[in-house]
Design a binder for these strands. Structure first.
Lengths: 157, 157
DNA sequence: TTGAATTAATTGTAAAATACAAACATTGTA
DNA sequence: TACAATGTTTGTATTTTACAATTAATTCAA
């Protein structure tokens, strides 16, 4: 009979393994989806995050904030943004109240691309979701929500 | 009142978004964990996958199989493996029954590294899991399992 | 109010990762 | 035995990346 502590450790271990496998699988899908829309993985992450941030917060995102969210260095991000500006997918101007900061937001074409990318990913997720027994679907969504909330509460993330 | 179809679409959309955010967060943790153990992200994925495959299947992994699992080209993987062999973390020999294939497996030191990496990630997951209400934990584990099973069934993955 | 310290972003540079195509090695087959 | 097929490696060029130094804007303090 396992002790409560051991059970807890096992659960964590299992969760970690599942997360690892899931992450890898999904990152491959993301790469493929991005390829289809002729952007790189990081570029797709930028488009996604800029869109999400603008929608949710109603304000623009600075380079510093974005690089922290994406886990890349400022210099890398600066060049990636340049590339997206060149492709006419992003606007980048200086924030008027403090001209050190950037205001980054999507061009109309950037919006289209972001939507396109999302659809590409949705089609993968659709397939996966269709393989989830229908009686488990609500539970899955709820659990993912619980997990995300926990992630947001955690200092490590 | 939403139609059933629209509800279904919304669920997928939500699942996709949650997966995207989760993936990004977790990949940053993985990067950090790998850094701590002075390997790159891809190297850590190699160690993880080789270990997992050997444990589960009891046979060694070929380069072709591994590159498909990790979503990188053969040439990239070949060099990454070389680097891990140089660091004495991987063995790479030719499979005797068909000497075209490689047998890849962890050295004792590789095993230690893999375990170390796992612990690093476990500590992150531990924190996240501790922020999941205890009455939701079993459900979360079950849901992740369901999701993984669905992923494995899906052609796109 | 001016100059130093602080903060945000960019750029110079070098190293690492990556993919494609060609080459190499081994095995299967006509 | 020749040659097609399969798995891996290597040549090459491109891309990505980070660190450190630089530039630009702001804040703070004497």
């Amino acid at each position: 009979m396992m002790s409560i502590e051991t059970q807890f450790e096992n659960q964590q271990y299992k969760l970690r393994q599942m997360l690892q496998i899931l992450m890898r699988t999904f990152s491959i899908l993301e790469k493929e989806g991005a390829r289809c829309c002729s952007v790189t993985l990081v570029e797709s992450h930028i488009l996604f995050e800029v869109k999400r941030y603008n929608d949710q917060k109603g304000t623009d995102l600075s380079l510093n904030e974005l690089s922290a969210k994406l886990g890349v260095s400022n210099s890398t991000l600066s060049r990636q943004i340049q590339s997206l500006v060149d492709k006419n997918l992003l606007y980048r101007t200086h924030y008027n109240n403090d001209r050190r900061y950037l205001s980054i937001y999507l061009t109309p074409e950037g919006e289209r691309y972001e939507k396109e990318l999302g659809k590409e990913l949705d089609s993968y997720v659709q397939e996966i979701f269709s393989n989830v027994p229908s009686e488990k679907r609500m539970q899955l969504l709820e659990s993912m929500d619980v997990l995300l909330t926990a992630v947001e509460k955690s200092d490590c993330c």
